[in-house]
Simulated assay, not measured.
Amino acid sequence: MTDNDTANWAPLEAVIPADDRYLWMWMGRATSDDGTVIEQYKHSLTRGYLNLSADGRAWLIRGTADGCTPFCGEQHEHRPDSPPTVEVVAMATAREWAWI
């Protein structure tokens, strides 16, 4: 069981240098289709999200509003009622989406 009100900083601490962690806010958590708990962190300057699980994986969570960001690179239609997509991505990709 996880407490949805208590920040878990361990995944962020594993990938962000100590001197840069003050720039991050814990925003909450999500759960993937396979049950993995994903911690959501937001950078205070770029406003980008870094989504990390305790096992060291990076996740991309895209809602309909995020589908056509400069990093999308795909031509497709996004419907407002579409569920968000949740996928494991390389850490470099996750950092790019967080604009860090």
Rank of each mutant, 00 (worst) to 15 (best):
G63A: 14
P83D: 14
A98H: 05
G48F: 01
T93S: 09
G28T: 07
W99N: 12
Q40P: 00
I100P: 04
D34M: 05
D19C: 07
D55C: 09
N4F: 09
L60A: 13
L50V: 04
P70Q: 10
R57K: 14
A58I: 03
T69G: 15
P80E: 12
E96H: 08
T69L: 08
Q75Y: 09
W26Q: 07
R79A: 14
R62S: 14
S53Y: 01
C72T: 12
G35K: 12
R47Y: 09
E39G: 03
W97F: 07
T69C: 11
R79S: 14
N4R: 06
P11M: 12
T46F: 05
E96S: 08
N8Q: 08
E87V: 06
A58P: 00
A94P: 03
G63H: 15
A18H: 09
Q40R: 13
S53K: 04
V89H: 02
P11Q: 12
D33V: 06
D19A: 15
A30Y: 04
T36N: 00
A90W: 04
T64M: 10
P84C: 14
R29S: 10
T2D: 05
A65Q: 11
T69W: 00
H76A: 13
Q75N: 07
T36H: 02
V86L: 10
A94N: 09
A54C: 04
I61W: 04
R62T: 13
L52N: 04
V88A: 06
P84T: 10
N8G: 03
C72N: 11
E96A: 15
H43P: 00
S32R: 02
L60C: 04
A58C: 15
T69E: 07
M27T: 10
M27S: 15
I38Q: 00
T46L: 02
D19R: 11
T64H: 14
T6R: 13
W99L: 12
